[in-house]
Design a protein around this nucleic acid. Structure first.
Lengths: 220, 220
DNA sequence: TTCCCCTTTTACACTTTCTTAACGCCCTGG
DNA sequence: CCAGGGCGTTAAGAAAGTGTAAAAGGGGAA
């Protein structure tokens, strides 16, 4: 059974989340602010954390940073609309995904499942996402067992997306990892390479979906 | 009976591995850090090495490199990190396979058997790719039963490609294996030798195809 | 020493990949 | 409705990588 930790200042939201999670068999603990949240995380060692960004006192981002100093637990961000920059900041500080309030319980549970599974299956010199397989050692890619010819940039880009399959990767994260240590500004070219990748992946492979203003996500 | 060497800093892990291995008839010796590990390897001449990448002091990769300077013993990497790049680095530096902690004993033993057999058959004198035959023992090559005259560099280069026939070998992998421990920069000359090899292989032998920006592949 | 073979360097044409710019679309907010 | 930002798409020039030939070192054998 999985343990979930809810960090949110609104009691009503905590009650709702607890209901949903417990109905799915999660063991739930709560915290009304960041300070207590961190203590609870250290004490209960949850398998997943639901973190509200709009916390009083300590900022949600700050809680996330402090948590990441010693824990790799999957973190799902709860945020209200129009906090795009904060969401980006959260993802870049180690958050795994986010949902926007108000959200449907089905979506919430789906995202929870995804980010928890990721933590388990991420470790390999081969990355497999559905019909797509990336062999990092040989720099080879295959789709449905058929070889897929990718340029170096395309491979690096797809690797970043596949490593975080099912989750959002911000444009900054992508650029930092694919164009590491380059002077030129690739922010324009990113769209072009995404376009090439989508063509090569076709209908049969996993889809690359855009999250406007944030980044991209490789859908399983 | 096979001898196994465990290089791991955690005593608990060493105990577990020793139990598993001894139950399978291995003779086991241990080392708690890389320095001692190398000494033990030199002294006991193990038939297989289990190497933890997360060693204190000397890096696991560094241990592997130093070991590979004088030994071809099969090496199985034990790794806890979910950083694929480190594992890739290990594989590129001569590791034979890896398991990720925590691992099942069944998987561990299976991988051990595989890499020991592979080392054995790989050293078995000959590599055959279609009409091409490489006799590693005598450093002779033949094409369609006719002797093929190759220079030492060409032979080493073709050997690397033939060992991984059908798969991409990156330029770095080639350079590391063919020009091991050399100061000069062979990145330019690689193209020249590839060119020579292609001419000597002609139309009848396997083709060497280029993957731009990545490396070469010997087509079966 | 000279000769010969192997390796490395150099040069340049050619191919593939990357970047840049332009344009039209969709969505959102005014 | 229009305006503006972000995105998808396309095409062309720039940049990087590759194939090939020929010449320049370098070491061993006669």
């Amino acid at each position: 059974m999985s343990k979930a930790l809810i960090i949110d200042d609104e009691q009503q939201m905590r009650r709702l989340l607890r209901m949903v999670l417990e109905s799915r068999g999660y063991e739930v603990c709560e915290a009304a602010d960041g300070q207590v949240g961190l203590q609870e995380a250290a004490f209960h060692r949850p398998d997943v954390v639901l973190l509200d960004l709009g916390l009083p006192g300590m900022n949600g981002i700050e809680v996330l940073k402090r948590l990441r100093e010693w824990s790799d637990v999957p973190v799902l961000i709860l945020s209200v609309r129009d906090q795009e920059t904060i969401k980006v900041e959260a993802l870049e500080n180690g958050a795994d995904d986010y949902v926007t309030k108000p959200f449907g319980t089905a979506e919430l549970l789906a995202r929870l499942t995804v980010i928890q599974r990721r933590r388990f299956t991420r470790q390999s010199a081969e990355i497999v996402v559905d019909a797509l397989k990336l062999d990092l050692l040989h720099h080879e890619a295959s789709l449905n067992e058929a070889p897929l010819k990718l340029t170096p940039t395309e491979f690096a880009l797809l690797k970043v997306l596949a490593e975080h399959a099912g989750r959002i990767v911000t444009q900054n994260q992508i650029i930092r990892q694919v164009w590491a240590g380059q002077a030129s500004d690739p922010s324009e070219g990113l769209r072009v390479h995404i376009n090439h990748l989508r063509k090569k992946l076709g209908d049969t492979g996993p889809r690359i979906v855009n999250e406007p203003g944030i980044g991209y996500r490789l859908e399983e």
